[in-house]
Amino acid sequence: MTRSNQSQRDHNLRERALKLLPWICAHCGREFDGKKLSQLTVHHKDHNHDNNPPDGSNWELLCLYCHDNEHQRYLAADMSGETPPSRKQDQPSTFTPFAHLADLLKHKT
């Protein structure tokens, strides 16, 4: 994709997102309007810029600061080999809080 096409795609996504979503940063809660609206960016929740469902369910609006922070956390986790923070929610939990409950109850009697 050429830089010009990518710029046009990003502009179109931003316009769609601004029509669908409230003008509030999804992380810090700051509200935007007027001239400051330019500080609100479209963030892909799954970090896949090709995943653009018509309902905007993969987008969130973030202020410039929160958007930069989100990508820095993602890069840091990726470089360290950890699961990036946005992908942790997609993995099922392996914690079983009552796994040893029967043993604990046996010892109480």
Rank of each mutant, 00 (worst) to 15 (best):
R9T: 15
R9E: 01
D10M: 13
D10K: 14
H11Q: 14
H11Y: 12
N12F: 02
L13G: 01
R14W: 06
R14E: 08
E15T: 09
R16M: 13
A17D: 03
A17Y: 08
A17C: 06
L18T: 02
L18R: 13
K19D: 02
K19M: 10
L20F: 04
P22L: 01
W23T: 06
W23N: 07
I24M: 08
C25V: 00
C25E: 02
A26L: 05
A26W: 02
A26D: 05
H27R: 04
H27Y: 14
C28I: 08
C28Q: 07
G29T: 10
R30E: 11
R30Y: 04
E31F: 09
E31L: 06
F32D: 01
F32C: 02
D33W: 01
D33R: 15
D33V: 05
K35T: 03
K36S: 14
K36W: 13
K36I: 13
S38N: 09
L40A: 08
L40W: 10
L40N: 03
T41G: 01
T41V: 00
V42P: 10
V42Y: 09
V42N: 05
H43C: 04
K45H: 10
D46S: 11
H47W: 11
H47C: 09
N48H: 12
H49I: 04
D50W: 07
D50V: 07
N51R: 01
N51V: 03
P53N: 13
P54L: 03
P54R: 11
G56K: 00
G56F: 10
S57M: 11
N58M: 08
W59A: 04
W59K: 04
E60A: 06
L61H: 08
L62S: 02
L62K: 11
L62I: 02
L62W: 02
C63R: 07
C63N: 02
C63T: 00
C63S: 05
L64R: 06
Y65N: 05
C66W: 12
C66T: 04
H67D: 07
D68R: 14
D68E: 15
D68T: 11
N69K: 15
N69C: 08
E70K: 02
H71F: 01
Y74L: 07
Y74D: 14
L75C: 05
L75A: 11
L75D: 08
